[in-house]
Every structure is written in structure tokens, then in C-alpha cells.
Computed example of a mutant assay.
Amino acid sequence: MKVAVMGAGAVGCYYGGMLARAGHEVVLIARPQHVEAIGRDGLRLDTQHFDEHVRVAASTDASAAKDAQLVLFCVKSTDTDSAANALAPHLDHDALLLSLQNGVENAERLRELLPQEAAAAVVYVAAEMAGPGHVKHNGRGELVIEPSTKSEEVAREFVAAGVPTEISGNVRGALWAKLVLNCAYNALSAITRLPYGKLVQGEGITRTMRDIVDECVAVAKADKVTIPGDVDAAVRRIAETMPNQYSSTAQDLARGKTSEIDHLNGLIVRRGEALGVPTPANRVLHALVKAIEGKASQGAIK
């Protein structure tokens, strides 16, 4: 099938690259430096199991999504509206948009903005852009997909491409489970500039993470969300399975970019306020990351 990846950063390049490697027609819609490198050398897919250059189309223009049956929607949550508007004139009426984004509200927002079917996916992968056109896979890679008219077909193709994929009727809960992990690690990794394995060794860090997670779970409960699995075990597993990974928030701040913190710890703060659940630990982390972002935008002394 033809697959378009809107916002082909680390996540989009990894999953798009895996599908292209399996023989699908994939176009990556990305920033100019990545498009140039991919056009010249192919996408370097540098994983834990292989390191290959995969031939794949790349463009800076949303019009490249024309005729795509599947669109992997991978932009930052802050860019959901603008990216959806850019895609709108070019999408086939029966295309499926699969949101591979952080946060818990993006698929719902896509359904508000576009007439095409949109489904959420929960992404468990450690990946980073190691250079133009070079995605480095540091661990895991599973997907959990929301049921849709095409979910079974899409899941089969991902599995055939080497991506463990399952369909779940409780993707909302799975998205919240991922949100809890992001809230526990992302801001702390960004503030300390440490990868997960070293982060959890810091004095008082695991207790602080416990406070963050407790607040998230309390907000989820008040919001009538059922989070699947053992949350505490899942939090511990991140540091064990991705010890060298820096959070996406840490990577954004290191590059002077705006992070998704408003859709992570910031969302917990907002939902906590609306539901009457105190969230002091998440509030502090949200405020600190926003302050660091402000410092970068004002050119303050480092």
C-alpha cells in the first residue's frame, strides 16, 4: 500500500522505514535537511538488529500524501492543527490517519478537523534522529492500534514488516498508560540532561517519580480512565529497557525547540484542575520546562 508519513522525525522515519523495507510505497514528509539526505543516500535505518540504507521517497510538501491509503501522523502535538490543515486538500476520502503522537487528545482532534477516518496508536519505541536522514533505533518498537475499518489490515502489514502490533479496544487507557510514562520521565530527563538509566540512579528521583505517577493515576481515575497493566512495573521497565535514551522533551530543549510539555505534565495539571485533583509534582515539572523554553527563546545566558 502507499503510506505517507506526515512529520517524519524519529518515530515517523522508524515506522515508515520499516514499512518501506518490507516493500510498501512510502513517502516521508519531513524537514528540508532530511529530505535532501534521503533523496541522495536513502533513509539510514540504524536499528538494534541491522543498519541499512532504505530507498524511500521524501518531500517537504504535504501534497506528497496524495493517493496514500495510510497516513502515519507523527507531528508534535503542538502542530496537529496546522499539519491537518496542510494535508486536507490532498487526502483520499478513504485514507486512514493513524496518530503516532504523544498525548491523549490528538486522534480526537483529527476527527474534528478532517472527514477521513482517524485512529490512535500507542507508540513504544526509543528512537532519535542521529543526523540528516539517519534514524537510530535504541529499543523496543511496539504499536497498539485503536479499532477502525482498516486496523486489522494495517496491523498485519506492520507485523509482516517486523513491528509488533496489536489492536486494543482500550486504546484510551493505553494512551494514558503511555502518558504516565512520559510524565514520569520526559521532564526529568530534560531538566537533568540525563538518559533514563542514569536518571533513576539520582538521589530522590525514584520517589519523585512515584509522586508524579500517583498524581497521574489519580487524575485518570477521576476522569474514568482504566489504565491497563501494572503502572509501577511499566515505569521501572522504561529505565531497564531504554537506559541510554533521552526523552523527546530533552531532545527538543537541547535543540532549542518548543517541547510537547503542555500535552504531557501540562495536561495532567489541566485535567487535575478541572476534576479537583491536586497535581503539585506535575505542576512544578511543567513550570520548569516552560521556564527553560522561555530562557532559550529569549537568548538568556546558558
Rank of each mutant, 00 (worst) to 15 (best):
Lys178Ala: 09
Ala300Trp: 12
Val75Arg: 00
Pro164Arg: 00
Glu117Met: 01
Val200Ser: 05
Ala64Asn: 05
Asn265Leu: 00
Ala107Leu: 14
Ala121Gly: 13
Asp262Ser: 13
Leu288Asn: 12
Lys2Gln: 14
Gly141Met: 04
Glu117Pro: 08
Asp67Phe: 04
Ile191Thr: 10
Val219Arg: 09
Ala281Arg: 09
Gly7Leu: 02
Gly276Tyr: 05
Glu260Met: 10
Gly103Asp: 15
Tyr196Val: 06
His263Thr: 11
Val219Asp: 15
Pro32Gln: 09
Asp262Cys: 05
Pro278Arg: 04
Glu128Pro: 06
Leu114Asn: 04
Ala190Trp: 01
Arg193Pro: 11
Glu25Thr: 14
Gly197Asn: 04
Val180Asp: 06
Leu181Pro: 01
Asp92Tyr: 00
Asp61Glu: 15
Arg270Gln: 12
Ser63Phe: 02
Gln201Phe: 00
His263Ala: 15
Leu87Trp: 03
Leu288Pro: 07
Val125Ile: 15
Ala220Cys: 11
Cys13Gly: 05
Val123Trp: 10
Leu96Ala: 09
Asp46Trp: 03
Ala86Thr: 03
Ala274Glu: 12
Arg109His: 14
Ala68Tyr: 00
Tyr15Asp: 06
Met209Pro: 09
Gly141Ser: 12
Val225Trp: 14
Ile145Ala: 04
Thr208Glu: 12
Leu194Lys: 13
Arg236Asp: 15
Pro164Asp: 09
Ala30Val: 11
Gly162Arg: 05
Ala107Gly: 13
Asp81Val: 14
Glu260Leu: 09
Thr165Arg: 00
Gly9Trp: 01
Val54Tyr: 03
